[in-house]
């Protein structure tokens, strides 16, 4: 069987697939790649099914070599010119520190065939459900290739822009103009941001009513407002239920940007208007 040996895992490298579905009611985060279009592109380039397991590499610093030659693709941070490439046996593949963005995706033809946990190969970093975190020296088994690589499949990556917002489900907790004020304000990404949430720094979102709501299910992209008023966009590893009110919800097509924004970078919001 083909293996990929990780020589250097960098700051944080995890195995991801489409995520763990249908278990949120047991308190299990869904997980999955933060930049879904980039992960899907990487899988397409090497001929994988969209749900094949790949690696999410945070801020580069990654090196690996394969026991046999295989097709690989790296997408995500530094997104330009993603393509499938042949990695010869014993050759080292490196993902350096990206000039822009945060998360890179490494897909190998056949996908990583690590043992699934509760039906998924995605690693959740909140409770660490899923395959163990990838470390220096981790040896990852590679499954049989399912299709031909498609080196010419290079669709335009989605263009960055403001994060488009739906109104949130808790209007009683905010002033009527909260959404407009959110969209008019400038926020920057805080360094504590991670796979659980994109934490922002900027004008506090004023809240009215009680400090907490009775715990309830939280959707991907919910913009939660804790007591300090600084919004948090909930991402793939969010806890499935929470008790802070949600002022808005980010459109799913814009969530990939939350994977690639660096601490200190600006974030703008805009109201979503259906076409």
């Amino acid at each position: 069987m083909t293996h990929l040996e990780v020589l250097s895992a960098g700051a944080l490298t995890t195995v991801q697939d489409r995520g763990r579905r249908g278990l949120a009611h047991l308190g299990v985060p869904r997980a999955g790649p933060l930049d879904r279009p980039a992960a899907e592109l990487a899988n397409r380039l090497v001929g994988n099914r969209p749900d094949a397991a790949l690696l999410e590499v945070t801020l580069g610093g990654f090196a690996a070599r394969a026991s046999r030659g295989l097709w690989v693709a790296v997408t995500g941070a530094d997104r330009a010119h993603a393509h499938a490439q042949w990695l010869a046996a014993g050759t080292t593949l490196e993902i350096g520190t990206p000039a822009a963005g945060v998360r890179s995706y490494l897909a190998v033809a056949g996908g990583f065939s690590v043992d699934p946990v509760l039906g998924s190969r995605a690693t959740d970093t909140l409770a660490w459900v899923g395959p163990p975190r990838v470390a220096d020296g981790t040896v990852l088994p590679v499954g049989p290739a399912a299709g031909e690589p498609r080196p010419l499949d290079t669709p335009r990556p989605p263009a960055p822009g403001p994060l488009r917002l739906f109104a949130g489900p808790h209007p009683g907790f905010f002033d009527d103009d909260a959404l407009e004020r959110l969209c008019a304000a400038a926020y920057v990404v805080r360094p504590e941001s991670n796979r659980v949430g994109l934490r922002l720094d900027g004008p506090a979102v004023p809240r009215i009513g009680p400090a907490e709501l009775p715990s309830e299910g939280m959707v991907l992209g919910a913009v939660q407002v804790p007591p300090d008023g600084q919004p948090v966009v909930l991402l793939a590893d969010r806890p499935p239920t929470g008790g802070y009110p949600v002022v808005a919800v980010v459109h799913p097509d814009d969530l990939w940007q939350c994977a690639q924004l660096r601490p200190g970078e600006p974030v703008r919001f805009a109201p979503f208007r259906a076409a």
Partner: peptide, 26 residues
Amino acid sequence: LAGWARAARVAATDVVPGARTVLFEG
């Protein structure tokens, strides 16, 4: 409600009860 909806095989990826709510995702 969450139990009733599951029994009715609602088309949702996740059915998440809370303290006073049920969230139907996907």
